[in-house]
């Protein structure tokens, strides 16, 4: 077992613990901060598996998301109660989760093993990128071969901005008399 793999497992376990704390803690602010820890864990994983561009983007996006969420947490205490607290519910839920995990474990046995991707599309992109003279293959894929996806991504951001503006209007409908004036 190599050193890289050990570090990888360590970071993923850290993410799992942070996620659990984020879900279970009563203090909403700590919950959001633990969520930030999950995101930064993901950035570290990106670095370990050789994706520096991804790590940078992840850090920036995570900071943005956490700041947004901290702004949202106007009431700090989580006073709600879950309906699942009695033993039968917990047992049923645990059984379901174990079932899913075991099923997934069995299915994953036939997945391409970790660390040996077939890369059919990736390899042909690499050859084409070399002909085109690109240095960073990720950006070559993003901005050249799959630029149409990037257009879609920009469109999603645009849609979200429009949506935020639409939802932040104070009044959705005009006053009653205004509406009837418009009709006639």
């Amino acid at each position: 077992m190599s050193e890289t793999l050990l570090i990888l497992y360590g970071v993923i376990c850290f993410m799992l613990v942070a996620a659990l704390v984020a879900v279970e803690t009563r203090d909403l602010l700590s919950s959001v901060l633990c969520l930030g820890a999950v995101g930064f864990g993901l950035a570290v994983v990106d670095l370990i598996v050789g994706a520096p561009d991804l790590a940078l983007t992840q850090v920036v996006v995570e900071i943005f998301a956490v700041v947004l969420l901290i702004r949202t947490v106007v009431a700090r205490e989580d006073t709600t109660r879950e309906f699942i607290r009695d033993t039968p519910h917990v047992a049923a839920m645990g059984a379901m989760i174990m079932g899913i995990l075991i099923g997934a474990y069995v299915c994953f046995q036939q997945l391409t093993p970790f660390g040996d991707p077939p890369m059919v599309m990736g390899a042909s992109y690499m050859r084409a990128a070399e002909e085109a003279g690109a240095t960073n293959l990720v950006t070559a894929v993003l901005l050249d071969f799959r630029a149409y996806d990037t257009l879609g991504e920009a469109t999603v951001i645009f849609a979200a901005i429009m949506g935020c503006y639409a939802l932040l209007r104070t009044r959705g409908r005009k006053e009653e008399h205004e509406g009837h004036d418009a009709d006639s």
Binding site: A51, V141, R146
Partner: peptide, 22 residues
Amino acid sequence: VDPVPQALVLTSIVIGLAVVAL
């Protein structure tokens, strides 16, 4: 490593941010 999944994740991170903002 394979560049294609990285490009996919870059796209999906940004999409995720848009959803979170909404």
